[in-house]
């Protein structure tokens, strides 16, 4: 459910990694996150940059909630939350450029994963956000990554208020860095951006990326652990069982 192709963009070899579950709006399964965690560092080693995208009309609609309902004890949700945190950390740890092409929608876990990118490209009317408290899930797992992208006050508001916002707003608050009018243009702009970043001297790019990450948070793995722990403590508990169980598909 993850597809890797190589794209030659201005003589730079770009690893194009795509969530390949268009029929389910690229809803994440534990296997998809495991594949991404395994694949991304290998792809980075063999290419000049990475672009992460999604097949079909949207980048990613979040966790596969129908799948989560199959384990009321929270087992799937636990795997997804852990995989999401690990995926964000894996992407952030890659020294080469990582660009995410988030067209159409990046919701909940799909929005959280944007925190792993150096540059996020989206479209003006894409829908983004973290409306997961409505299903009894804490978006705390996303806080360490989202909080590094936007002002803390904005992070607080967006994680607590379960409402979606448009790509234009994501651009305004700093969650997205480049904006196009049409969703169909997002991938092209992401590839161009990745090639441009890959044209920088690699050692300078890597050193700068590591420095910025350290300045953002010198204890990044510990912060990520705290966020994950806060979300995990609710999985399989009555509130989540009740609210998640009430969803119909």
């Amino acid at each position: 459910m993850i597809k890797l192709t190589t794209h030659n963009q201005a003589d730079r070899m770009i690893a194009l990694i795509a969530f390949d579950r268009a029929g389910k709006r690229n809803a994440l399964t534990p296997e998809m996150l495991t594949e991404l965690i395994d694949l991304a560092p290998k792809a980075a080693a063999d290419h000049d940059a990475i672009v992460l995208t999604g097949e079909g009309k949207v980048f990613c609609s979040g966790f596969d909630l129908a799948l989560c309902q199959t384990t009321p004890d929270g087992d799937i949700m636990r795997q997804l939350l852990t995989g999401l945190s690990n995926a964000c950390q894996t992407l952030k740890a890659i020294d080469k450029p990582v660009v995410i092409a988030a067209h159409g929608a990046a919701i909940a876990g799909g929005c959280a994963i944007l925190g792993g990118a150096d540059v996020v490209v989206t479209d003006t009317h894409a829908k983004l956000g973290y409306p997961v408290t409505k299903i009894g899930v804490s978006p705390a797992v996303s806080a360490p990554f989202f909080g590094a992208s936007v002002p803390k006050g904005v992070c607080r508001e967006k994680l607590l208020l379960p409402m979606l916002f448009f790509g234009a707003h994501a651009h305004k608050i700093g969650l997205a860095h480049l904006l196009t009018d049409e969703p169909e243009q997002v991938l092209d702009l992401a590839l161009e951006t990745a090639a441009n970043l890959a044209s920088k001297p690699p050692h300078a790019y890597a050193a700068t990326k590591r420095l910025v990450a350290k300045l953002e948070d010198p204890n990044q793995s510990e912060t990520a652990r705290k966020g994950l722990t806060a979300s995990l403590q609710l999985t399989g508990k009555p509130e989540e069982q009740r609210m998640l169980g009430a969803l119909t598909f």
């Binding site: 804490s138 994680l159 966020g227 806060a230």
Partner: peptide, 17 residues
Amino acid sequence: TGGPDALRATKSLLNTL
């Protein structure tokens, strides 16, 4: 509309961070 436990856990984590 949010789950009270989910909101509390999220706010508590944000306060810690």
